[in-house]
Amino acid sequence: MEVLGYYNYWVFAVLLMIGFYAVIARSNLIKKLLGLAIFQSAVFLMYITMNKVEGGTAPIIQKGVVDQIFSNPLPQVLILTAIVVGVSTTALGLAIVVRIKETYGSIEEHEIFEADLPK
């Protein structure tokens, strides 16, 4: 069951590629940003997956309980930071799209490109 056992990693890879494809193939700037968000979320999933230890619980030390298996909390902390970074990137990206819409009147990449061509 090698392939199924890596279920989460397959989802990670597929999500990553879906996001990447949207960034490259879509000319609508909002869709590009959505793709970028999916792309980043895929990586969050990878981090969350790798901290899981089979049979492990939350790493809280309790009185009288010994030999407890803990999941690794560090990747979750890391990814919390990365989620914040991802949210602020998306927010900034959307803010830029708003300003592009205000100045160019469009959020389609080719229309923006054509608007700046010398007439």
Partner: peptide, 25 residues
């Protein structure tokens, strides 16, 4: 024209940073 340029930079920069993040992971 800074706006579309910066959007492009943001997209490419974020992809770069995310690749780095995957590598670190």
């Amino acid at each position: 024209r800074a706006l579309p340029s910066v959007f492009k930079y943001l997209v490419m920069g974020t992809i770069g940073a995310t690749f780095y993040l995957i590598g670190i992971g």
